[in-house]
């Protein structure tokens, strides 16, 4: 027979705090805190962009005054057309994309070749030369500016696209990134390819390069974005207006002669479109590439 006491005599007890409960409570709060921080950060990142877009459809008088939204002047979509009227915007656009594409292609190509040499080929002093090459990353770009400019003068490349493309075609960072990728590929693949009849070039082209694809795409994104934004070197190098890139061309709206912030914002909004497209298309490779580099490096 059961000897359990009737229910009304049972003393209510506090729920037992088990280790499992404590963990789930802690996880709940940590998730909340994490999400709150992430949302706040997202706002901080998105707000300037929203301000940019809204400003790009205001009149000049409404910029920086009162509401974020356009006032009685209405939504001035004409600003976008006005940009093309005032400056050769399309030309700058083409120049920027042309240069960024060339630099991206050359950087990825030269970096992958150098990374192949530093990771897959055995030659005396290889690792020492790599460290030396890597140490060039420690030098600030501005330090190199004057010697580079003098070299450009002697080569006759000032005010030419070659002066923007060729010096940017080599990168220690890209070599480092791709070398880390290549080091994670088993050496037996090179050997198998060599026995199959592949020359060193075919090993690079047919075996190693396809396997480094996430790394190549990561580097391509970094390079394209970095070069598309590039301001100071083109400012120094370019004299002819028809060779201007977007960052230089946009100075027209922010000169000492007058500031047209609404048009500047419209131009900037249009200029970021290629980067947004590149990012959306290749985002998954970017994340994969960075992770791979981090884990296998």
């Amino acid at each position: 027979m059961s000897t359990t006491e009737p229910n009304h005599l049972a003393i209510p007890t506090r729920p037992v705090r088990t280790a499992k409960n404590t963990v789930s409570v802690r996880r709940f709060f940590s998730t909340w805190v994490l999400h709150t921080v992430l949302v706040a950060l997202s706002f901080a990142l998105v707000l300037p962009f929203v301000w940019l877009l809204l400003t790009s459809v205001k009149t000049l008088e409404e910029v920086g005054v009162g509401s974020w939204l356009p006032g009685k002047g209405g939504w001035r979509w004409d600003n976008y057309i006005e940009v093309f009227r005032q400056i050769p915007f399309a030309r700058y656009y083409v120049n920027s994309i042309f240069i960024a594409c060339w630099v991206t292609f050359l950087q990825v190509f030269t970096s992958s070749l150098a990374a192949f040499a530093f990771s897959r080929l055995d030659w005396p002093g290889r690792d020492k030369v790599f460290v030396l090459y890597l140490s060039t990353m420690m030098l600030p770009g501005l330090v190199m500016m004057i010697p580079n400019y003098q070299i450009m003068i002697s080569l006759g490349w000032v005010d030419r696209f070659t002066g923007l493309i060729v010096p940017a075609a080599f990168t220690a960072f890209g070599t480092f990134l791709l070398r880390q990728f290549m080091l994670s590929i088993p050496k037996a693949l090179d050997e198998a390819a060599e026995i199959d009849g592949a020359s060193k070039w075919r090993v690079y082209w047919d075996v190693i390069l396809p396997m480094t694809r996430p790394g190549l795409i990561t580097l391509a994104i970094f390079t394209f974005m970095g070069n598309y934004h590039s301001f100071f070197w083109p400012l120094v190098m370019l004299k002819s207006e028809f060779r201007y890139t977007l960052p230089i061309g946009l100075l027209y709206f922010d000169s000492t002669a007058g500031q047209e912030t609404n048009l500047l914002m419209a131009a900037v909004a249009m200029s970021v479109i290629p980067m947004v497209i590149v990012f959306i298309l290749l985002q998954k490779y970017l994340v994969k590439g960075i992770q791979l580099g981090a884990v296998k490096g």
């Binding site: 390819a193 060599e194 026995i195 020359s199 047919d206």
Partner: peptide, 20 residues
């Protein structure tokens, strides 16, 4: 003579298949 000209074929411990 380089490996490619020795008229040999090799099977590796980890197979060394080209993953792509």
């Amino acid at each position: 003579v380089p490996p490619k000209d020795r008229d040999i074929a090799m099977v590796f411990q980890n197979y060394a298949l080209y993953p792509h």
